[in-house]
């Protein structure tokens, strides 16, 4: 039972990471490797400001992550618009490494740690079953954020613009959608989502090093591609699937759990070969990207 809850909670966390990546991809066809560093910086901020009340500390982390996201857009990605996804992908790869090294200079290469929200590491008993508080809180946070994002995307003007821009940015602009502002918003939201991921991760693992966000970002990237990168729903679903499978594999592979990633990557390759556009893609269309 705990295994299922763990899987759902990990899947949810990955879904949040995938959502942040998918949002930015939707508006500018950018696979943002540096999303990892947004997660990392928010974890750092939470560790450094651990003496403040949790909420304040989290809000600070969100703010920093959102600002960093916007900054990378302004300084780098904006100037690379229209050069093609491959160039932007490599640039984000470079930015990712660059930020990691900056963190190393600022925070040191060794992990910084602090017990963020220690009450969450406890466990409790319910109906004869044992649950950890953190997995329950994670699931609750994830559901809340997914609902909020669903509302934002489906019901607000900004969401409408995001959806329109993701299908056809040119026409959206012809209708008056301000490109810079919209892309900036997407980056800011992706930063906030990254900080939520950072929070969840830092509770589970309070050792923050410069590569802290890398693993989940790579796997979430894998997730959005298999889920179908052209829709946010697909991205979130793909992220969830990857996290869920990984958690289940970890539980049931026993000693072979170290190979969980191998199985996952193999599954990814197979899924891509069968459906290059992702699980949720409708047709086998020639790729736009």
């Amino acid at each position: 039972m705990q295994a299922i809850l763990d899987a759902i909670s990990l899947g949810g966390t990955y879904a949040l990471a995938a959502l942040g990546l998918g949002l930015v991809f939707g508006v500018m066809r950018l696979v943002n490797f540096a999303h990892a560093e947004l997660i990392t910086i928010s974890a750092y901020v939470m560790v450094v400001t651990n003496d403040l009340p949790l909420l304040i500390s989290f809000l600070l982390a969100s703010l920093v992550a959102a600002l960093l996201a916007i900054l990378t857009e302004l300084a780098i990605y904006r100037r690379l618009r229209g050069t093609g996804p491959a160039i932007m992908l490599i640039a984000s790869f470079g930015l990712s490494v660059g930020l990691q090294k900056s963190y190393e200079l600022i925070f040191g290469a060794l992990p910084r740690s602090a017990a963020v929200a220690p009450w969450m590491t406890g466990s409790f008993e319910f109906a004869g079953l044992n649950f950890t508080i953190s997995s329950l809180v994670t699931v609750a946070i994830t559901i809340a954020i997914l609902l909020a994002m669903g509302y934002l995307v489906e019901r607000t003007t900004l969401g409408l613009q995001l959806r329109a821009a993701a299908t056809d940015f040119k026409t959206a602009r012809l209708l008056g959608v301000r490109s810079n502002r919209l892309i900036g918003s997407a980056f800011a939201i992706s930063g906030i989502l990254a900080s939520a991921v950072g929070f969840i991760l830092v509770v589970e693992n309070p050792q923050v090093d410069p590569m802290f966000g890398l693993n989940i970002t790579i796997l979430a990237l894998v997730g959005i591609v298999i889920g179908g990168i052209s829709s946010l729903r697909g991205a979130a679903l793909g992220g969830f699937i990857v996290g869920f499978i990984l958690s289940i594999l970890n539980t049931f592979l026993g000693n072979a759990r170290v190979y969980a990633y191998s199985y996952l990557f193999l599954a990814v390759v197979i899924i891509l070969l069968v459906r290059p556009g992702g699980i949720l893609s409708k047709r086998n269309e020639m790729e736009r990207v």
Binding site: T157, L160, Q161, R163, A164, T167, D168, K170, T171, A172, L174, L175, G176, V177
Partner: peptide, 17 residues
């Protein structure tokens, strides 16, 4: 270049941007 995945009303709302 209408947005085929959006509803008619949503398309019009975009025009109001």
């Amino acid at each position: 270049q209408i947005f085929g995945g959006l509803t008619v009303t949503e398309n019009l709302m975009l025009g109001l941007t």
